[in-house]
Design a protein around this nucleic acid. Structure first.
Length: 716
DNA sequence: TTCAACCACTT
DNA sequence: ACCCTTGGTTGAA
C-alpha cells in the first residue's frame, strides 16, 4: 500500500501520456516532479438521428472505438448559435486516443456536427480542476498518480510571486542564415561560455552535460527552431533535450499562412516535454513584449508557454473563449478545415465601415491635446454586451439592455480588461525607476494584444465564436461614441481638429497644461462610459497632406512635439519597415532639430540647421561612408518569387538568394541594398556588397522625400 | 498619361 | 489561423 503525500507548486507542463495525463510540477522545495492522472475526455456529435445511430453502432462495434475503450451516451448540450441540442457523447479514458477517434468518426460521418473535438488539453484540465498552466496548486499523490488537485491562486492576480524558473540560454556564434556557426554560446545565470560544434561527438557530450548540470525549465534560444534542434537531428545525435526521457521532441514544419492582412512565414518548430523551448527569433510577437509578455499570455489564456510563444494572440483569445464555453457548458464547434472563401460581392458591399475617421486640418497647430479612449473596442464589447449570441438581426434590441446576462465574449473579456487597466493603474503609481516597471509594462502590452485581436476575431469567418453582425455593432458603436465625445468637447468650447478611430485632437485658446483638459476627460467618460486618457499636449503638431493632392489631408500621417519635448510621429517614413536606417535616422534628426524650437513660431528658425543635417547625410552617402547595414531595406516577400508579374525589389532579392542556393518562402522578410543597373538590388546574405555599386541617386531621392515630409509643413 | 501591381501604415 | 481601408510608388501600356 503506497502512502499519500501532499505537495504544492506550479504546474509547468501537461500533455497526454501513455497512461493518462502527464503533468510536471515545479514544487516549492525545488523538485521537478513528474506526475500522472486519470483524465477521461469527451467529444460530442449531433445531427440527423439516423446518422447518429449509425455512428453509435460504428463506434460500439467497429475496431476504432473498441480499441480506444470509448463509452457512448446520449446527452443534451447548448450550442451557442442554435440552442439546446441532442448530442451523442463519445468518451475516451485516455486523452491521447481522442484525436484518432475523431479523425476516423468525421471521415466516416462527415455530415455530422462535431463539438469539443479539438480543444487543447490544458484548457479541458483548467475547466475541470480550476488549475491552469503556470498556476499554483496543491496535489495529493499516491506513488506518482494524482488523486486530488486544487488550485491555490487564479490567473487574474495582479502581481503574483514569479515562478522560480531555471532558464538556459543557447545561441550560435553567428547568424546561421548567413554563415556557418562554429560555436554554441551557453549562458545560465552568471555562467557564460562557448562550446565547439565540432567534433560532433564532443559537442554532443558537452551539450548533454550542460542539460544535466543545469536541468533548465526553459531553454531560450536564438535559431533553436530553425537551426539548432534541426541540426541535432540532421547530425544523428542521440541526445534527448526533453525532461521526459520517454518522449521524442515534437517538431512542426515551417509554413506560410495568411494573417493580419499579409502573408506570414513561420519557421519549423521544436517543442519539448517536461520543459519548454522558445526560439526568440521564431516567436511571433516576442519582440513586442518579450518573455514576460509571453508568460502573461500563457497564464491568462491557459495555453502552454511553448504554444503561446509561437502563435498569434488570436489563438490565445480563442483558447480563452473555449475555456469560458467549457465552464458554462456551451459546446465548442470543431473547426471545419476549409480555406477561407473569397467574399461574395454582396458581402463586400455589406462590409462594415470600420472606425470613425475624420479629416484633419492640414498644416501645423499649436497647443493641441491628443486624448485616447483606453481599450475602446473591448470596452464596448463588455459594456454593451456584444457577443455572437446577443447580437444579430433578431437580437439588435438587446444591445446594452440591463438584465441580459453577459454573453460569451464579454464574459471572457471582462476580467482581461480589468486586469490590464489595473496593471496600468499600478504602473502609474510606481516610480519610473522601480525595477518592476519593465515587467509590468510588458505584461500590460501582452494583454493589450489579446484584447485588440478579440475584436478582429468577431468578424473572422473561421472563428468559432464570431459573427459579422457583432463586429459591425462594435464599429458602429465606436463611431457613435466618438461623435458623442466630439459633441462634448465642442460644448465645452474646444475645437476638434482630428479624430481617428479611438482618439481625438482638441484645442482651445488658453489650454496648455494637462490639468486644463481634465474636465473634458471627465465629461467624455461620464457621457460614454468608457475610460479616456490624455496622451499628451503638443507644443505643436503637423497633419500632412496627401502626396497626390496637396488639398486632401491623410488621417494617419502626422508628427508633433509634446510639451515634455518628446516627439511623436505616425505614418511618416521613419515609421515604415521598408525605410533604411540611414533615411529614418536622418529624418528623425531633422525632426529633433525642429523640436528644439520653444514655440511653433520659432520652428522656421531651425530650417537652415535642418537643411545642413540633410546635406551632411548626403555627403556621407556620396563619399561611401555610410555603412552597408544603414542602407539595408527590409521588405516582406508576399508570394513565391516566380509568382510575381512584376518582381518587386524583395522578389529580386529573393531570386538572388535562391541562385546562391538558399531557400526562400512567402512571408519571409528580405533585406537588400538598392544598386545601380540590373537587377537593381543586392540581397543581404549574398557575399560582399561592392560599395561602388550602391544606387546613391536612389538613396538621395528617398532621403529627399523623407526630409520633405517633415519640412513641407514649415516651408512658407 | 493612365493603370495594374505591389507594399506598408493606422490600432 | 484577424477585420477593414487607404496612400504611395513603380513600371508597363
Amino acid at each position: 500500500m503506497q502512502t499519500i503525500s501532499s505537495t504544492a507548486g506550479w504546474l509547468i507542463d501537461l500533455y497526454a501520456g501513455e497512461s493518462g495525463l502527464a503533468l510536471w510540477l515545479l514544487c516549492d522545495d525545488g523538485q521537478r516532479l513528474p506526475l500522472r492522472m486519470d483524465f477521461p475526455i469527451s467529444l460530442y456529435a449531433a445531427g440527423d438521428f439516423g446518422l447518429l445511430r449509425q455512428a453509435w453502432r460504428f463506434l460500439s462495434e467497429g475496431s476504432c472505438g473498441q480499441g480506444a475503450g470509448v463509452r457512448l451516451a446520449r446527452a443534451t448540450r447548448r450550442d451557442l448559435f442554435s440552442g439546446e441540442r441532442e448530442v451523442m457523447s463519445v468518451t475516451v479514458p485516455n486523452p491521447s486516443a481522442l484525436a484518432a477517434v475523431f479523425a476516423e468518426l468525421s471521415r466516416q460521418f462527415p455530415e455530422l456536427d462535431y463539438y469539443d473535438a479539438d480543444i487543447p488539453l490544458p484548457l479541458r484540465f483548467a475547466a475541470r480542476t480550476g488549475v491552469t498552466l503556470l498556476g499554483r496548486c496543491r496535489v495529493e499523490v499516491c506513488g506518482n498518480r494524482i488523486s486530488t488537485i486544487e488550485t491555490l491562486d487564479n490567473r487574474w492576480e495582479l502581481d503574483p510571486a514569479p515562478i522560480p524558473l531555471r532558464i538556459l540560454n543557447l545561441s550560435p556564434d553567428v547568424n546561421p542564415t548567413l554563415r556557418t556557426p562554429q560555436q554554441l554560446a551557453i549562458s545560465y545565470k552568471r555562467a557564460d561560455y562557448r562550446i565547439n560544434l565540432e567534433p560532433r561527438r564532443a559537442f554532443e557530450i558537452a551539450l548533454e552535460a550542460v542539460l544535466r548540470q543545469f536541468d533548465p525549465d526553459l531553454i531560450l534560444t536564438d535559431y533553436g527552431d530553425t537551426w539548432l534542434f534541426p541540426k541535432l537531428r540532421e547530425w544523428g545525435l542521440t541526445l534527448n533535450p526533453n525532461r521526459d526521457p520517454a518522449r521524442e521532441v515534437l517538431t512542426r514544419k515551417a509554413d506560410s499562412y495568411f494573417a493580419y492582412g499579409q502573408v506570414v512565414y513561420r519557421g519549423a518548430q521544436t517543442h519539448l516535454y517536461g520543459r519548454w523551448h522558445i526560439d526568440r527569433r521564431n516567436a511571433m510577437m516576442f519582440g513586442e513584449y518579450g518573455l514576460d509578455g509571453v508568460l502573461e499570455q500563457a497564464r491568462v489564456t491557459g495555453l502552454g508557454v511553448q504554444e503561446m510563444a509561437r502563435k498569434s494572440p488570436g489563438a490565445g483569445i480563442t483558447a480563452m473563449q473555449m475555456l469560458t464555453a467549457l465552464r458554462t457548458n456551451v459546446l465548442v464547434p470543431a473547426v471545419k478545415q476549409q480555406a477561407e472563401a473569397a467574399k461574395t460581392l454582396q458581402e463586400l458591399v455589406a462590409a462594415d465601415k470600420g472606425g470613425m475617421i475624420y479629416q484633419p486640418l492640414i498644416g501645423t497647430h499649436k497647443d493641441v491635446a491628443q486624448i485616447d479612449f483606453s481599450s475602446m473596442y473591448p470596452s464596448i464589447m463588455v459594456n454593451f454586451n456584444i457577443s455572437p449570441e446577443t447580437t444579430g438581426p433578431a437580437r439588435t434590441g438587446t444591445i446594452g439592455k440591463v438584465g441580459v446576462p453577459d454573453g460569451l465574449v464579454p464574459q471572457t473579456l471582462r476580467p482581461l480588461l480589468g486586469k490590464r487597466l489595473a496593471l496600468k493603474q499600478l504602473l502609474t503609481e510606481l516610480h519610473p525607476r522601480d525595477c518592476r516597471v519593465k515587467t509590468l509594462k510588458a505584461r500590460a502590452a501582452a494583454l493589450k494584444w489579446l484584447l485588440v485581436v478579440c475584436f478582429g476575431y468577431l468578424g473572422y469567418k473561421n472563428a468559432r465564436f464570431g459573427k459579422i453582425e457583432s463586429h459591425e455593432a462594435v464599429t458602429s458603436l465606436s463611431r457613435e461614441l466618438l461623435l458623442q465625445a466630439k459633441e462634448v468637447a465642442e460644448r465645452m468650447g474646444f475645437e476638434v481638429l482630428h479624430m481617428y478611430v479611438d482618439c481625438l485632437f482638441v484645442q482651445q485658446a488658453g489650454c496648455q497644461a494637462a490639468a486644463d483638459f481634465v474636465p473634458l476627460l471627465n465629461a467624455i467618460e461620464t457621457q460614454t462610459g468608457i475610460a479616456i486618457a490624455l496622451d499628451g499636449v503638443y507644443r505643436w503638431v503637423a497633419f500632412l497632406p496627401s502626396r497626390r493632392d496637396k488639398r486632401i489631408p491623410v488621417p494617419n500621417r502626422y508628427f508633433g512635439v509634446f510639451q515634455s519635448g518628446e516627439i511623436k510621429y505616425r505614418g511618416i517614413e521613419a515609421r515604415r519597415h521598408d525605410t533604411s536606417s540611414w533615411v529614418s535616422s536622418t529624418q528623425l534628426a531633422v525632426l529633433e532639430c525642429l523640436a528644439q524650437a520653444a514655440t511653433l513660431e520659432q520652428v522656421g528658425d531651425y530650417r537652415v540647421k535642418a537643411q545642413a543635417i540633410i546635406a551632411q547625410a548626403k555627403r556621407c552617402l556620396m563619399a561611401g561612408r555610410v555603412p552597408v547595414e544603414d542602407l539595408l531595406v527590409t521588405q516582406r516577400l508576399s508570394r513565391a518569387p516566380e509568382a510575381y508579374k512584376t518582381p518587386s525589389p524583395a522578389a529580386r532579392a529573393a531570386m538572388q538568394l535562391q541562385q546562391a542556393g538558399k531557400t526562400v518562402a512567402p512571408g519571409q522578410t528580405m533585406r537588400f541594398v538598392f544598386t545601380r543597373g540590373k537587377p537593381g538590388v543586392w540581397a543581404y546574405g549574398c557575399g560582399e556588397l561592392d560599395i561602388r555599386t550602391v544606387d546613391t541617386a536612389m538613396y538621395a531621392r528617398l532621403l529627399e522625400r523623407a526630409a520633405q515630409s517633415v519640412l513641407e509643413s514649415f516651408s512658407q
